[in-house]
Protein backbone atom coordinates (compact mmCIF):
# COMPACT_ATOMS: atom_id res chain seq x y z
CA UNK A 1 0.00 0.00 0.00
CA UNK A 2 1.65 3.14 -1.16
CA UNK A 3 1.05 6.52 0.31
CA UNK A 4 -0.54 8.52 -2.44
CA UNK A 5 0.85 11.98 -2.13
CA UNK A 6 -0.27 14.54 -4.62
CA UNK A 7 1.74 17.67 -4.80
CA UNK A 8 -0.01 20.98 -5.02
CA UNK A 9 0.49 24.68 -4.82
CA UNK A 10 0.77 24.69 -1.01
CA UNK A 11 2.81 21.52 -0.67
CA UNK A 12 5.46 23.49 1.20
CA UNK A 13 3.10 23.79 4.19
CA UNK A 14 4.15 21.12 6.70
CA UNK A 15 0.60 20.21 7.82
CA UNK A 16 -1.44 18.56 5.07
CA UNK A 17 -5.05 19.61 4.59
CA UNK A 18 -6.30 16.06 4.99
CA UNK A 19 -4.52 12.85 5.88
CA UNK A 20 -5.64 9.26 6.21
CA UNK A 21 -3.34 6.54 7.46
CA UNK A 22 -4.08 2.83 7.21
CA UNK A 23 -7.79 3.61 7.36
CA UNK A 24 -10.17 0.63 7.46
CA UNK A 25 -13.84 0.44 8.18
CA UNK A 26 -16.24 -2.45 7.70
CA UNK A 27 -20.03 -2.43 7.86
CA UNK A 28 -20.89 -6.00 8.72
CA UNK A 29 -19.10 -8.04 6.06
CA UNK A 30 -18.76 -5.12 3.65
CA UNK A 31 -15.30 -3.56 3.67
CA UNK A 32 -16.11 0.06 2.95
CA UNK A 33 -12.55 1.23 3.54
CA UNK A 34 -9.62 -1.12 3.14
CA UNK A 35 -6.32 0.28 4.44
CA UNK A 36 -6.65 3.68 2.83
CA UNK A 37 -3.59 5.91 2.86
CA UNK A 38 -4.05 9.39 1.55
CA UNK A 39 -2.46 12.78 1.90
CA UNK A 40 -4.15 15.86 0.49
CA UNK A 41 -1.90 18.91 0.64
CA UNK A 42 -3.28 22.16 1.92
CA UNK A 43 -5.08 24.37 -0.55
CA UNK A 44 -6.38 23.42 -3.97
CA UNK A 45 -9.15 21.12 -5.06
CA UNK A 46 -8.81 17.36 -5.00
CA UNK A 47 -11.27 15.11 -6.79
CA UNK A 48 -12.31 11.85 -5.18
CA UNK A 49 -13.62 9.56 -7.86
CA UNK A 50 -14.56 5.91 -8.06
CA UNK A 51 -17.46 3.61 -8.82
CA UNK A 52 -20.56 3.52 -6.64
CA UNK A 53 -19.93 1.89 -3.28
CA UNK A 54 -16.16 2.23 -3.50
CA UNK A 55 -15.89 3.95 -0.12
CA UNK A 56 -15.90 7.62 -1.09
CA UNK A 57 -18.77 8.53 1.23
CA UNK A 58 -17.36 6.43 4.08
CA UNK A 59 -14.01 8.18 3.76
CA UNK A 60 -15.78 11.54 3.84
CA UNK A 61 -17.82 10.54 6.90
CA UNK A 62 -14.61 9.64 8.76
CA UNK A 63 -13.05 12.96 7.75
CA UNK A 64 -16.20 14.83 8.83
CA UNK A 65 -15.89 13.34 12.36
CA UNK A 66 -19.10 11.32 12.06
CA UNK A 67 -17.71 7.81 11.68
CA UNK A 68 -14.97 6.04 13.61
CA UNK A 69 -12.59 3.88 11.62
CA UNK A 70 -11.90 0.30 12.71
CA UNK A 71 -8.18 0.87 12.22
CA UNK A 72 -6.03 3.82 11.35
CA UNK A 73 -6.77 7.49 11.76
CA UNK A 74 -7.36 10.68 9.86
CA UNK A 75 -6.20 14.23 10.49
CA UNK A 76 -7.83 17.42 9.38
CA UNK A 77 -5.17 20.13 9.34
CA UNK A 78 -3.42 18.00 11.92
CA UNK A 79 -6.43 17.52 14.19
CA UNK A 80 -7.70 13.98 14.80
CA UNK A 81 -11.53 13.82 14.89
CA UNK A 82 -11.35 10.82 17.23
CA UNK A 83 -9.60 12.97 19.85
CA UNK A 84 -11.02 16.41 19.20
CA UNK A 85 -14.21 16.26 17.15
CA UNK A 86 -15.11 19.86 18.02
CA UNK A 87 -11.73 21.03 16.80
CA UNK A 88 -12.25 19.24 13.48
CA UNK A 89 -15.77 20.61 13.14
CA UNK A 90 -14.46 24.12 13.56
CA UNK A 91 -12.06 23.63 10.66
CA UNK A 92 -14.14 21.51 8.32
CA UNK A 93 -17.35 22.03 6.38
CA UNK A 94 -19.15 18.95 5.13
CA UNK A 95 -21.81 18.72 2.49
CA UNK A 96 -23.42 15.30 2.49
CA UNK A 97 -24.78 13.45 -0.50
CA UNK A 98 -28.57 13.49 -0.57
CA UNK A 99 -29.05 15.46 2.63
CA UNK A 100 -32.36 16.73 3.89
CA UNK A 101 -33.01 20.14 5.28
CA UNK A 102 -35.17 21.74 7.95
CA UNK A 103 -38.17 21.91 5.72
CA UNK A 104 -40.32 24.28 7.72
CA UNK A 105 -37.60 26.91 8.04
CA UNK A 106 -36.87 29.53 5.43
CA UNK A 107 -33.54 29.45 3.66
CA UNK A 108 -32.31 32.37 5.74
CA UNK A 109 -33.45 30.73 8.98
CA UNK A 110 -31.71 27.47 8.04
CA UNK A 111 -28.43 29.30 7.53
CA UNK A 112 -28.81 31.38 10.69
CA UNK A 113 -29.56 28.24 12.68
CA UNK A 114 -26.51 26.51 11.26
CA UNK A 115 -24.39 29.56 12.04
CA UNK A 116 -25.68 29.47 15.62
CA UNK A 117 -24.97 25.75 15.83
CA UNK A 118 -21.40 26.50 14.82
CA UNK A 119 -21.18 28.92 17.71
CA UNK A 120 -21.38 32.18 15.76
CA UNK A 121 -23.14 34.90 17.69
CA UNK A 122 -26.07 36.74 16.13
CA UNK A 123 -23.82 39.68 15.31
CA UNK A 124 -21.39 37.51 13.35
CA UNK A 125 -24.04 35.24 11.87
CA UNK A 126 -26.18 37.87 10.16
CA UNK A 127 -23.60 39.37 7.78
CA UNK A 128 -22.12 35.95 7.07
CA UNK A 129 -25.52 34.52 6.13
CA UNK A 130 -26.33 37.49 3.87
CA UNK A 131 -22.93 37.11 2.22
CA UNK A 132 -23.54 33.41 1.56
CA UNK A 133 -27.06 34.02 0.26
CA UNK A 134 -25.54 36.42 -2.22
CA UNK A 135 -22.55 34.27 -3.21
CA UNK A 136 -24.72 31.21 -3.89
CA UNK A 137 -27.49 33.17 -5.61
CA UNK A 138 -29.95 32.22 -2.88
CA UNK A 139 -31.09 35.76 -2.05
CA UNK A 140 -34.30 35.57 -4.13
CA UNK A 141 -35.17 32.40 -2.20
CA UNK A 142 -34.09 33.64 1.23
CA UNK A 143 -37.58 33.91 2.69
CA UNK A 144 -39.03 30.81 1.06
CA UNK A 145 -39.43 27.66 3.13
CA UNK A 146 -36.66 25.20 2.37
CA UNK A 147 -39.13 22.48 1.37
CA UNK A 148 -40.19 24.30 -1.82
CA UNK A 149 -36.64 24.47 -3.17
CA UNK A 150 -35.76 22.45 -6.25
CA UNK A 151 -33.08 19.83 -6.00
CA UNK A 152 -30.46 22.11 -7.44
CA UNK A 153 -31.43 24.93 -5.10
CA UNK A 154 -31.22 22.53 -2.15
CA UNK A 155 -27.72 21.58 -3.28
CA UNK A 156 -26.76 25.24 -3.21
CA UNK A 157 -28.28 25.60 0.26
CA UNK A 158 -26.28 22.54 1.32
CA UNK A 159 -23.09 24.16 0.11
CA UNK A 160 -23.99 27.35 1.96
CA UNK A 161 -24.59 25.31 5.14
CA UNK A 162 -21.18 23.69 4.78
CA UNK A 163 -19.53 27.08 4.33
CA UNK A 164 -21.38 29.01 7.02
CA UNK A 165 -18.53 28.94 9.57
CA UNK A 166 -15.87 29.84 6.96
CA UNK A 167 -14.09 26.48 7.23
CA UNK A 168 -10.53 25.98 6.04
CA UNK A 169 -11.35 22.52 4.68
CA UNK A 170 -14.43 21.63 2.64
CA UNK A 171 -15.55 18.05 2.08
CA UNK A 172 -18.22 17.95 -0.63
CA UNK A 173 -19.98 14.69 -1.41
CA UNK A 174 -21.49 14.79 -4.91
CA UNK A 175 -22.11 18.54 -4.88
CA UNK A 176 -22.88 18.69 -8.61
CA UNK A 177 -25.59 16.04 -8.68
CA UNK A 178 -28.90 17.51 -9.72
CA UNK A 179 -27.43 20.81 -10.80
CA UNK A 180 -28.28 22.40 -14.13
CA UNK A 181 -25.35 23.37 -16.40
CA UNK A 182 -25.37 26.97 -15.27
CA UNK A 183 -25.35 26.02 -11.57
CA UNK A 184 -22.52 23.59 -12.25
CA UNK A 185 -20.41 26.32 -13.75
CA UNK A 186 -21.19 28.51 -10.76
CA UNK A 187 -20.31 25.68 -8.39
CA UNK A 188 -17.01 25.31 -10.20
CA UNK A 189 -16.32 29.03 -9.89
CA UNK A 190 -17.28 29.04 -6.19
CA UNK A 191 -15.02 26.09 -5.44
CA UNK A 192 -12.14 27.56 -7.45
CA UNK A 193 -12.54 30.87 -5.63
CA UNK A 194 -12.43 29.09 -2.27
CA UNK A 195 -9.32 27.17 -3.29
CA UNK A 196 -7.71 30.37 -4.46
CA UNK A 197 -8.35 31.71 -0.96
CA UNK A 198 -6.38 28.81 0.53
CA UNK A 199 -9.24 26.46 1.37
CA UNK A 200 -8.56 22.75 0.97
CA UNK A 201 -11.43 21.16 -0.98
CA UNK A 202 -12.10 17.45 -1.38
CA UNK A 203 -14.92 16.85 -3.81
CA UNK A 204 -16.47 13.63 -5.04
CA UNK A 205 -18.51 13.30 -8.18
CA UNK A 206 -19.46 10.99 -10.98
CA UNK A 207 -19.42 13.77 -13.52
CA UNK A 208 -15.77 13.52 -14.41
CA UNK A 209 -15.43 16.29 -16.95
CA UNK A 210 -16.98 18.69 -14.44
CA UNK A 211 -14.38 17.62 -11.91
CA UNK A 212 -11.58 17.98 -14.39
CA UNK A 213 -12.33 21.65 -14.85
CA UNK A 214 -12.56 22.13 -11.11
CA UNK A 215 -9.75 20.05 -9.68
CA UNK A 216 -6.00 20.21 -9.39
CA UNK A 217 -5.60 16.61 -8.30
CA UNK A 218 -7.54 13.41 -8.51
CA UNK A 219 -7.65 10.36 -6.25
CA UNK A 220 -9.29 7.23 -7.62
CA UNK A 221 -10.84 4.75 -5.21
CA UNK A 222 -12.10 1.30 -5.94
CA UNK A 223 -13.37 -1.39 -3.57
CA UNK A 224 -12.39 0.61 -0.50
CA UNK A 225 -8.84 1.31 -1.64
CA UNK A 226 -7.00 4.18 -3.24
CA UNK A 227 -5.92 2.81 -6.62
CA UNK A 228 -4.48 5.89 -8.28
CA UNK A 229 -3.74 9.51 -7.68
CA UNK A 230 -2.75 12.06 -10.25
CA UNK A 231 -1.72 15.63 -10.49
CA UNK A 232 -4.00 17.00 -13.18
CA UNK A 233 -1.96 20.16 -13.64
CA UNK A 234 1.11 18.18 -14.73
CA UNK A 235 1.31 16.94 -18.32
CA UNK A 236 0.56 13.25 -18.73
CA UNK A 237 3.03 10.98 -20.56
CA UNK A 238 1.02 10.45 -23.71
CA UNK A 239 -2.19 11.86 -25.04
CA UNK A 240 -4.42 9.97 -27.43
CA UNK A 241 -5.55 12.22 -30.26
CA UNK A 242 -8.34 11.44 -32.69
CA UNK A 243 -8.06 12.59 -36.30
CA UNK A 244 -11.07 12.40 -38.59
CA UNK A 245 -10.50 12.73 -42.32
CA UNK A 246 -12.69 12.82 -45.43
CA UNK A 247 -10.08 10.57 -47.03
CA UNK A 248 -8.85 8.11 -44.40
CA UNK A 249 -6.43 6.38 -46.80
CA UNK A 250 -4.63 9.66 -47.52
CA UNK A 251 -4.36 10.25 -43.78
CA UNK A 252 -3.03 6.72 -43.24
CA UNK A 253 -0.45 7.17 -46.00
CA UNK A 254 0.92 10.42 -44.58
CA UNK A 255 1.20 8.94 -41.10
CA UNK A 256 2.81 5.72 -42.37
CA UNK A 257 5.37 7.72 -44.39
CA UNK A 258 6.43 9.41 -41.15
CA UNK A 259 6.38 6.19 -39.16
CA UNK A 260 3.63 7.43 -36.85
CA UNK A 261 1.59 4.59 -35.37
CA UNK A 262 -2.14 4.92 -35.68
CA UNK A 263 -5.09 2.73 -34.74
CA UNK A 264 -8.34 2.53 -36.64
CA UNK A 265 -11.45 3.86 -35.04
CA UNK A 266 -14.37 1.63 -35.98
CA UNK A 267 -17.11 3.65 -37.64
CA UNK A 268 -20.38 3.56 -35.80
CA UNK A 269 -22.61 2.74 -38.78
CA UNK A 270 -20.25 0.44 -40.65
CA UNK A 271 -19.92 2.41 -43.88
CA UNK A 272 -18.41 5.86 -43.95
CA UNK A 273 -17.30 5.63 -47.57
CA UNK A 274 -13.83 7.16 -47.79
CA UNK A 275 -14.28 8.96 -44.51
CA UNK A 276 -12.71 7.56 -41.38
CA UNK A 277 -10.86 8.31 -38.17
CA UNK A 278 -7.55 7.22 -36.69
CA UNK A 279 -6.22 7.55 -33.13
CA UNK A 280 -2.67 8.81 -32.74
CA UNK A 281 -0.60 9.06 -29.54
CA UNK A 282 0.99 12.47 -29.07
CA UNK A 283 3.36 13.65 -26.36
CA UNK A 284 1.63 16.92 -25.57
CA UNK A 285 -0.40 19.74 -27.09
CA UNK A 286 2.63 21.10 -28.95
CA UNK A 287 3.14 17.69 -30.51
CA UNK A 288 -0.53 17.64 -31.52
CA UNK A 289 -0.11 21.02 -33.15
CA UNK A 290 2.88 19.74 -35.15
CA UNK A 291 0.82 16.79 -36.28
CA UNK A 292 -1.99 19.03 -37.48
CA UNK A 293 0.46 21.22 -39.40
CA UNK A 294 1.93 18.12 -41.04
CA UNK A 295 -1.50 16.89 -42.11
CA UNK A 296 -2.57 20.26 -43.47
CA UNK A 297 0.74 20.66 -45.34
CA UNK A 298 0.05 17.33 -47.05
CA UNK A 299 -3.48 18.37 -47.99
CA UNK A 300 -5.08 15.65 -45.89
CA UNK A 301 -8.76 16.63 -45.64
CA UNK A 302 -9.01 16.74 -41.82
CA UNK A 303 -12.42 17.59 -40.36
CA UNK A 304 -12.00 16.63 -36.71
CA UNK A 305 -8.91 16.92 -34.55
CA UNK A 306 -8.92 16.60 -30.79
CA UNK A 307 -8.48 14.40 -27.68
CA UNK A 308 -9.77 10.86 -28.26
CA UNK A 309 -11.43 10.44 -24.88
CA UNK A 310 -14.40 12.73 -24.80
CA UNK A 311 -14.35 12.89 -21.01
CA UNK A 312 -10.84 14.19 -20.97
CA UNK A 313 -7.79 13.06 -19.04
CA UNK A 314 -9.53 12.46 -15.77
CA UNK A 315 -11.94 10.04 -17.39
CA UNK A 316 -9.12 8.21 -19.13
CA UNK A 317 -7.23 7.96 -15.88
CA UNK A 318 -10.32 6.84 -14.00
CA UNK A 319 -11.17 4.19 -16.55
CA UNK A 320 -7.66 2.81 -16.71
CA UNK A 321 -7.29 2.77 -12.91
CA UNK A 322 -10.57 1.00 -12.27
CA UNK A 323 -10.03 -1.35 -15.21
CA UNK A 324 -6.70 -2.49 -13.79
CA UNK A 325 -8.44 -3.24 -10.52
CA UNK A 326 -11.15 -5.25 -12.23
CA UNK A 327 -8.80 -7.42 -14.29
Amino acid sequence: MSVSTVRGAHAADPTPGLEAHDLSRAFGDVRALDHVDLVVPRGGVTALVGPNGCGKTSLMLVLASLLSPDTGHVRVLGVDPAKDPRGVRRLLGWMPDGFGTFEALTVREVLRTMAGAHGLGAGAARPRVEELLHTLRLDPLADRPARVLSRGQKQRLGLAQAMVHSPQVLVLDEPASGLDPRSRLELRDTVRALAAGGVTVLVSSHILDELEEMCDRAVVMDAGRVVASHDLTAAPALLRWRVGSLDVEALRAVLAARGIEATDVPSPDGDWGRRGALDVDVADEADAHALLRLLVDHDVPVFTFGPATTGGRLEAMYLSATREERS
Binding site: S65, L66, R86, R89, P96, F99, G100, A117, H165
Partner: peptide, 14 residues
Protein backbone atom coordinates in the same frame (compact mmCIF):
# COMPACT_ATOMS: atom_id res chain seq x y z
CA UNK B 1 -34.21 9.59 8.19
CA UNK B 2 -34.71 13.12 6.91
CA UNK B 3 -30.95 13.57 6.76
CA UNK B 4 -30.80 16.56 9.08
CA UNK B 5 -29.26 14.94 12.16
CA UNK B 6 -25.77 14.64 10.70
CA UNK B 7 -25.75 18.25 9.50
CA UNK B 8 -26.22 19.29 13.13
CA UNK B 9 -23.75 16.72 14.43
CA UNK B 10 -20.91 18.23 12.39
CA UNK B 11 -21.38 21.59 14.10
CA UNK B 12 -20.19 22.63 17.55
CA UNK B 13 -23.36 21.14 19.08
CA UNK B 14 -22.51 18.26 21.39
Amino acid sequence: DRGVLATLQVTQLG
